[in-house]
Design a protein around this nucleic acid. Sequence first.
DNA 1: GCCCATTTGTTCGTATGTATA
DNA 2: TTATACATACGAACAAATGGG
Lengths: 155, 155
Amino acid sequence: MTDVNDRLLHARVVNDIRARIASGDLAVEKRIPSTAQLVEEYGVSISVVRRAVDTLKNEGLLQGQPGKGVYVIATPEQVAAERRSLESLASEVADLRTDLQALTKRLDSDSHARTVATEVAELRSAVEQLYARLGYAYPTSDAGTPKRRHRNTGT
Amino acid sequence: MTDVNDRLLHARVVNDIRARIASGDLAVEKRIPSTAQLVEEYGVSISVVRRAVDTLKNEGLLQGQPGKGVYVIATPEQVAAERRSLESLASEVADLRTDLQALTKRLDSDSHARTVATEVAELRSAVEQLYARLGYAYPTSDAGTPKRRHRNTGT
DNA sequence: GCCCATTTGTTCGTATGTATA
DNA sequence: TTATACATACGAACAAATGGG
């Protein structure tokens, strides 16, 4: 399973730290050993450790806090799931679009409200799963205050 | 628009090179100046140039080839579109869920097919935008074979 | 409030290896 | 073989933030 890049020192450190995070040795919300400690542990230069930690920060597993330390903020599984969600989401949306198109077609032809209700129910289920895949909860009982959330424009 | 990190040397170089790629000064499939040349151009150390190029390689804009040079393999727009898709998708799906919930509610109360048709049309428009935001084309005439795609259960 | 040790973050310099022409 | 250029690795200096005394 180990990458072919294991010959490279910084890649070896990256893989090892990633494995320690996955195994729970380095837990989320916890500190990892300091740079100096990692230098002693792995017997490499400070540059290699810096590059390894930098890579994992870039991957989204670690986050440094000057003066305090470097903390684990996610597991490799979470990051992998996050990355995977984009591709699988594309096919999910494709399914949703197909269903929606069929529903529109059926609605346009006649007025079978019962059939349409069933279709919509399935559609809602699809969106529900889509929503869950994004990591958000699906509030089923928010009919009390159906305030529409403003669109986050980002940056 | 420029990041607050513009004080950092390597960030300055990153932003400048990214701008040069966006403006077409550094074209795709073409070589960027060598490391030594960039050192002279920006008046920084080789470490800064290395880190800047490394960042852009990590972003997917550049790709180094030992013995030859560093090549542009993508524009910032392409990368930005790819990155933006995930975050904006969350809010898009949120709106979609709200609309769908309202549609279900309306369907459950009575059988106003005309009103439902309007709601569905809006929903389809939302999905259309969602689809476009993912970078995929929206085939409007594939209703011939509405085969239902198997649901990916993930992990 | 001040000093000091620890730690991360940025920058600089240098040496060696490897690939291409 | 030689020259160019990227890739990796080692080492060191300084700034900034944090926490303890």
